[in-house]
Write a protein that binds this DNA or RNA. Structure first.
Lengths: 196, 196
DNA sequence: CTAATTGTTGACCTAGAGTTCAAGAAAGTG
DNA sequence: CACTTTCTTGAACTCTAGGTCAACAATTAG
């Protein structure tokens, strides 16, 4: 009972996420959020408590969407190396083709809030870990499929990929697409095929 | 003539740099800067114009110090690969051993101000480019010294190193030192020795 | 010493951030 | 319909960021 909400909380969270992503946490004001979501400032506070709380929800939303995208891109047909390269390229392309280059919300958060916000730090860490796991699993699958050499250390290569992605989100502010692609190729070179 | 300054502008800029580095641009207030430098707010504005102007000076200062450190670490005795690995490790160690993990000022700036501050963007880009050049030159030196295979693409490897460094500054918020070291090793693996 | 110049300091100002709240509106309950 | 509950809205509030300014201090030129 009671008056029903005039908005879908999930929609609002996603719009808030977009705003935080584009502008950064500190640079996003309650007024910005109200405008971006179409919901009054008061209602936002009523529904979500505080800017920081809404940001937590936004970060979770980002995590979910990112994970889905990662799984989707990695599980399409092809070798592990092909799929992983395509995955990284897709991230770079999304950044370069978007209206503004905004990097990765999780990484931005890590840098902006690191040291001052333990909860955000944990969330970011969890997101990174999850991606590493997915990539590691994909490399292991490649080993079973016979397109990755058995002596490749899947965990380390997965960490390197995750690290490369983090770096590229920064390098994307300034370097050419072809340069970034070269970095991607060099980065996945360690995911070697078996010797024939 | 006129009353002499009661502070060394370069000292103030360096302290301001430390503060911006630790807290981020937006989260650093004029009051913070006054406290960190020991110079009154009014004097800071009198001497440097605005917070943004002072930040520019701080970023230049960072660039200078970083470049000196890079050259120093790369030019010590050893093979190119050894030196580059030591260089990256030194950056990671500095981050992990410091009182707070604060990443790289240039990278933080790239993410925080990207898209909204063309001048900052250009500066960051210049800093990155400079580091890539130094690493590329060191790899080329390695080729002449015979510790790097002639067919290694020095430019691409240098870009990969720079990208790895950027990524590690983010991964350092959350991952273990040994994990980061493994990433470093995987990242410099492409700087191969000549076949004997 | 006086004047001109440059620095310093703390008070002051404006705008906006982040939040709260009182009044009213839309639903279900009996 | 009265009543409770939940939501909406806009005003209001407090606090700080970012910056300006007037008054005073320290220096040098002549």
């Amino acid at each position: 009972m009671g008056r029903p909400k005039t908005f879908e909380p999930d929609d609002v969270i996603e719009r808030a996420m977009q705003t935080f992503w584009t502008r950064g946490y500190a640079a996003t004001s309650p007024a910005d959020l109200a405008e971006a979501t179409g919901v009054g400032k008061g209602s936002l506070y009523h529904a979500f408590g505080s800017k920081r709380d809404l940001f937590s929800k936004a970060l979770e939303c980002y995590s979910r969407l990112g994970e889905e995208m990662t799984e989707d891109l990695l599980n399409r047909p092809g070798t592990a190396k092909e799929r992983i390269r395509a995955y990284i390229r897709a991230l770079v392309d999304a950044d370069l083709d978007g209206p503004v280059r905004r990097g990765c919300l999780a990484a931005n958060t890590a840098l902006e809030l690191a040291g001052r916000d333990p909860e955000a730090e944990r969330t970011v860490r969890r997101i990174a870990e999850r991606v590493v796991d997915l990539i590691e699993a994909r490399i292991e699958l490649g080993k079973r499929d016979g397109d990755v050499a058995a002596d490749v250390d899947a965990r380390v290569q997965a960490l390197l990929v995750q690290n490369t992605v983090s770096g590229l989100r920064i390098m994307a502010c300034g370097f050419e697409r072809s340069t970034l692609y070269a970095v991607i190729d060099a980065s996945v070179a360690g995911i070697r095929q078996p010797a024939v």
